[in-house]
Simulated scan of single mutants.
Amino acid sequence: MARAQIPDSDGLAAVLATRGEAPTRDQKAMAVRYTLQLLAERAPGNTVEVRVPPFGATQCIEGPRHTRGTPPNVVEMTAEVWLDLARGVLDWDDAVQAGNVYASGQRADIGGLLPLLRGRFAE
Rank of each mutant, 00 (worst) to 15 (best):
A2I: 07
R3Q: 05
Q5F: 05
I6T: 12
I6V: 15
P7A: 13
P7W: 00
D8P: 08
G11Y: 02
L12Y: 03
L12N: 10
L12P: 02
A13K: 05
A14D: 07
A14M: 08
V15R: 01
V15G: 08
V15Y: 05
L16A: 15
A17T: 01
T18S: 13
R19G: 15
P23V: 03
R25G: 06
Q27L: 12
Q27E: 15
A29P: 09
M30F: 08
V32I: 12
V32P: 10
V32M: 12
Y34G: 02
Y34S: 04
L36M: 06
L36H: 03
L39W: 00
L39Y: 01
L39K: 02
L39A: 07
A40W: 03
E41D: 11
R42F: 13
A43S: 11
A43W: 11
N46T: 14
T47E: 15
T47M: 11
V48G: 00
E49Y: 04
E49D: 06
E49F: 01
R51N: 00
V52S: 12
V52P: 13
V52Y: 01
P53G: 02
F55G: 12
G56Q: 06
G56S: 12
A57W: 10
A57Q: 13
T58W: 05
G63C: 04
G63I: 04
P64F: 13
R65C: 07
R65F: 08
H66Q: 07
T67D: 10
T67Y: 11
G69T: 01
T70S: 07
P71W: 02
P72S: 09
P72I: 04
M77Q: 09
T78Q: 11
A79M: 03
V81F: 06
V81D: 05
W82Q: 01
W82I: 05
